[in-house]
């Protein structure tokens, strides 16, 4: 089986400081990968490099495209990369405001990606927007409301709907549950887990919340100071941490 995403020796420097370095891994279709680490450990830098928002200084990010098979997205042309960003990739920001157009209605937000890939039938676009609102548990009576009238959890779910409407195969998530209260987090995680299973999505989830990766991720990568210090199956890493930092991380979680 061809990996959906092959990351080979990716590095990003900010001047003399290390953003992230020596990162390599393969992600297979349907697999969910978690990246955990403390603030400043380079996990967001890595995610942005993989999603094409930042240009890595070194390394390859090979994505298995539908048309041409495995292609290095770092060296591919910008229009092609942006096209991937609208079709096969999705990016869920930590703050829903970064990923939504706050002055455009919920339906317009969901429809934007459809229109960006050439959909020009209003009725179809609206029907699909209503369908996706339903899938993320937002009443379709709110289709014409602006996201600013939504609660934080609803905004985050709307952002997810907006990203998944074009049927992407790879989803990048940057702290998707950050800033939400625990009961809303639980619902969101439940929803994400359902969508990932149902659509057979691959995902890369960056978070500092170990509970999130425990629930969602198949595999785990632990980062510290821009380096990957431990990788493995999620349960294996969390139940039997080998590296000193991972042990610290696991033991830092409060048990209620």
């Amino acid at each position: 089986m061809t990996p959906l995403l092959q990351v080979k020796d990716v590095a990003k420097m900010y001047g003399a400081r290390i953003g992230c370095t020596d990162v390599s891994f393969d992600l297979y279709p349907g697999e969910v990968m978690g990246i955990v680490g403390e603030s400043g450990s380079g996990k967001s830098t890595l995610l942005n490099c993989l999603a094409g928002h930042l240009a890595p200084d070194r390394g390859e990010v090979v994505f298995d495209t539908r048309a041409d098979g495995p292609v290095d997205t770092v060296t591919m042309s910008e229009p092609a990369r942006r096209m991937l960003g609208r079709t096969d990739w999705a990016f869920v920001h930590q703050h829903a405001r970064d990923g939504l157009r706050m002055s455009v209605s919920a339906g317009g937000n969901i429809g934007e990606r459809l229109m960006a890939v050439g959909d020009r039938h209003y009725g179809d676009i609206r029907a699909r927007a209503a369908d996706w609102l339903g899938r993320v548990e937002i009443s379709d009576a709110r289709i014409d409301d602006r996201p600013s009238a939504f609660s934080g959890g609803m905004q985050q779910r709307l952002q997810i709907a907006r990203n998944l409407v074009t049927g992407p195969r790879l989803v990048f998530m940057d702290e998707p549950t950050g800033g939400l209260d625990v009961s809303v987090q639980a619902r969101l995680l439940d929803l994400l887990r359902g969508l990932v299973r149902e659509m057979g999505l691959s995902a890369i989830i960056v978070t500092h919340d170990l509970a999130v990766v425990r629930l969602l991720a198949d595999r785990l990568m632990v980062m510290k100071d821009g380096h990957v210090v431990e990788t493995g199956l999620t349960d294996q890493v969390l139940d039997d941490p080998q590296h000193g930092y991972t042990q610290l991380l696991v033991s830092s979680v409060l048990q209620v």
């Binding site: 229009p79 609208r86 209605s105 317009g108 990606r113 229109m115 960006a116 020009r120 609206r126």
Partner: peptide, 18 residues
């Protein structure tokens, strides 16, 4: 430059929905 004009239709979509 990249002919990414989907956004223009978002405006028209908003018009129709409102």
């Amino acid at each position: 430059a990249l002919q990414e004009y989907g956004l223009m239709h978002v405006k028209l979509y908003e018009d129709i929905s409102q």
